[in-house]
């Protein structure tokens, strides 16, 4: 899942992911609030229903209405088994040390990535997720 208020960045990031993982299933949101609503509804569905739960969320920090950190707070408040394994990475052009530290401290956040996204960085993320799945 990609959450970014800038459509161009959404497009660029999607392209990079598709380059590494050809059959990647990607859902994008330009509003963090809509993304939260989507995840909430997914968490409430029964197993029989259609489900698309992302493995990874790439989340922009500076967005109107609801920013990346507010998203993380909301997400932590969602109480659902199926959402527990989602890894969220903050993706921002900010190199501000405070943002990086805040990201590091937030328990719902798995990492901080500086824009622009690159192929290597996508690969690395996917490796991280796979190792975690194998460990389970």
């Amino acid at each position: 899942m990609l959450v970014d208020d800038n459509e161009i960045d959404l497009f660029v990031n999607q392209k990079y992911i598709e380059k590494i993982v050809e059959d990647a299933e990607i859902i994008t949101f330009i509003r963090a609030k809509k993304a939260i609503e989507y995840l909430e509804s997914m968490g409430q569905r029964s197993n029989a229903d259609f489900k698309f739960i992302p493995d990874i969320i790439l989340l922009d920090i500076n967005m109107p209405e609801m920013n990346g950190f507010e998203f993380l707070d909301e997400f932590s408040g969602l109480d659902s088994e199926v959402l527990r394994d989602i890894r969220i990475y903050l993706l921002s052009s900010s190199t501000n040390i405070k943002d990086v530290m805040d990201a590091d401290r937030h328990k719902a956040c798995s990492g901080f990535i500086t824009k622009p996204l690159t192929g290597e960085r996508v690969q690395q993320m996917i490796n991280d997720v796979s190792t975690k799945i194998v460990q389970k």
């Binding site: 800038n6 161009i8 660029v12 392209k15 990079y16 052009s93 500086t114 622009p116 996204l117 690159t118």
Partner: peptide, 24 residues
């Protein structure tokens, strides 16, 4: 200052991402 620095940086990052894609 903080917000301006970030917001000025954002379009550059986007452009960089686009240019990387254009290369391929």
């Amino acid at each position: 200052m903080y917000r301006s620095a970030h917001d000025l940086n954002a379009p550059f990052s986007s452009a960089q991402g686009l240019i990387n894609l254009m290369k391929d």
